[in-house]
Simulated scan of single mutants.
Amino acid sequence: MKLFLIGFLSGIISGMGIGGGTILIPGLIIFSNLNQHQAQGINLAVFIPIATVALITHSRKKNIDLSTAAPIIFTGLIGAFIGSSIAVKMTPSFLRKVFAAFLFIMGAYETFGKKKK
């Protein structure tokens, strides 16, 4: 039941474009016997079908500008290769700390960062 709830909540967050991994990864680590590498790997596998549904929904609403997305997709693929190559060499403990620091920094920025008018 816990996995269904984690999936449901991460799907909602993913559909909003926030990133379901912020729910999925900590949820898997806290409520299962998975380590950081396994949780992040599962997140990647789960991301594809969830992102496909969200992509179709946002595309129908004309919320996707491919001229903006194309260079991000291209460089993101390169970055994903580099990042995953680095991540698999890290210990699960260190990777968990890097992930936690990233979430903390993003949370602080969203809370205290410069607001657009």
Score class of each variant (00 low, 15 high):
3 L>E: 12
3 L>Y: 14
5 L>P: 14
7 G>K: 00
7 G>V: 03
15 G>S: 04
16 M>F: 15
16 M>S: 14
17 G>T: 08
19 G>W: 05
19 G>F: 09
20 G>V: 04
21 G>A: 06
21 G>V: 02
23 I>L: 08
23 I>Q: 01
24 L>Q: 03
24 L>T: 04
25 I>Y: 00
25 I>S: 01
25 I>E: 00
26 P>Q: 00
27 G>S: 04
29 I>K: 01
30 I>G: 05
31 F>K: 02
33 N>F: 08
35 N>C: 01
36 Q>D: 04
36 Q>M: 09
39 A>M: 02
39 A>W: 00
40 Q>E: 06
41 G>V: 04
43 N>T: 08
45 A>S: 10
46 V>Q: 08
47 F>V: 06
47 F>P: 00
50 I>Y: 04
51 A>E: 04
52 T>F: 15
52 T>D: 08
53 V>Q: 05
53 V>K: 04
53 V>M: 12
53 V>S: 08
54 A>K: 04
54 A>N: 08
55 L>W: 15
56 I>P: 02
59 S>Y: 11
59 S>N: 13
61 K>M: 11
62 K>C: 11
62 K>T: 12
64 I>Y: 12
66 L>Q: 14
68 T>Y: 10
69 A>N: 07
71 P>K: 09
73 I>V: 12
73 I>N: 02
73 I>G: 01
74 F>S: 13
77 L>E: 06
78 I>G: 05
79 G>S: 15
80 A>N: 10
80 A>L: 15
82 I>L: 10
83 G>W: 09
83 G>L: 10
84 S>W: 07
85 S>L: 08
85 S>N: 12
88 V>I: 15
88 V>K: 14
89 K>P: 00
90 M>S: 07
92 P>R: 13
92 P>S: 11
94 F>D: 14
94 F>N: 13
96 R>H: 05
98 V>K: 09
99 F>K: 04
100 A>E: 05
101 A>H: 05
101 A>T: 15
102 F>N: 12
102 F>K: 10
102 F>G: 09
103 L>K: 01
103 L>V: 07
105 I>V: 14
106 M>R: 11
107 G>W: 02
109 Y>T: 11
110 E>M: 14
111 T>N: 08
113 G>L: 13
113 G>Q: 13
113 G>M: 08
114 K>A: 13
115 K>C: 06
115 K>G: 03
